[in-house]
């Protein structure tokens, strides 16, 4: 039983279900990656785990507690951090203010957390008083991840964080993700760049049409010829 798990999830936004009996989970200090073709329900699966759509069947458990009924904001308080795919920073706030807003629910002193975030993303420290809207795409994603880390989450969920950034920036972001995982945080991410993501993954889920197709360690999935052929471009 994983630390965080969405079990047998079935549901969607409207009448038609997008997810069908789909299960994804992740343990502390581990990176789990959800991949699959377009429209496979990857992002939907993650949103379901975060409570952004209601499930018809199945449940979400964290640390052995059923959190299926909680709203996203309540899950944040329970220790989930979520980085949306788009509009994930406050563009008219400075980098530092973005991080402060990330820590909005914390009433204690969060300066040490901010120092940790700055250690992780040194460029943000440099640009702390610049508006987030003025940063480059990769730096913005760092702000977004940093903002989510400010609550000191036990689970960090990344929705296609590397979409639209250059390969170099992507590698750099993945390096940071590994560093975050090493601090004992569970990381669940949805990725378009399947091959690179599976490379760093402890656990991989290949979804097709809202169903689990393959589930294995990242390395095993990369090694699996069927997966390679169908999803990783050979």
């Amino acid at each position: 039983m994983s630390f965080l798990i969405g079990e047998n999830m079935t549901g969607g936004y409207g009448a038609a279900d997008i997810l069908h009996d789909c299960t994804i989970g992740v343990d502390k200090g581990e990176i789990a990656v959800v991949v699959g073709p377009n429209g496979a329900g990857k992002s939907t699966a993650m949103k379901a785990v975060f409570g952004m759509l209601s499930l018809r069947e199945g449940k979400v458990m964290m640390d052995g507690v059923d959190i299926t009924a909680l709203k996203p904001q309540e899950r944040v308080r329970q220790g989930m951090g979520f980085v949306p795919q788009t509009n994930n920073v406050f563009t008219s706030l400075t980098v530092e203010e973005n991080l402060e807003m990330g820590a909005f629910i914390r009433r204690d002193d969060f300066s040490d957390t901010m120092v940790q975030v700055f250690d992780l993303f040194p460029v943000l420290k440099e640009k702390r008083s610049q508006l987030a809207g003025e940063l480059s795409g990769g730096q913005r994603q760092q702000v977004a991840v940093g903002r989510a880390l400010m609550t000191r989450p036990e689970v960090l969920m990344l929705d296609e964080t590397t979409a639209g950034v250059s390969p170099i920036v992507m590698d750099e972001l993945f390096d940071r993700v590994i560093e975050v995982a090493r601090t004992g945080i569970a990381i669940l991410m949805v990725e378009q760049n399947a091959k690179q993501a599976l490379n760093i993954a402890d656990k991989g889920y290949v979804l097709v049409q809202g169903r689990n197709r393959y589930t294995d360690t990242g390395a095993a999935l990369i090694a699996n010829p069927e997966v390679r052929k169908a999803f990783l471009g050979g």
Partner: peptide, 22 residues
């Protein structure tokens, strides 16, 4: 102030503000 900043954040990006617990 924290409240003032949260107002600016809300005005900037409502969804993200909700996510941040504002």
């Amino acid at each position: 102030t924290r409240t003032g900043k949260s107002m600016r954040a809300y005005s900037d990006n409502e969804d993200l503000a909700l996510l941040s617990g504002i």
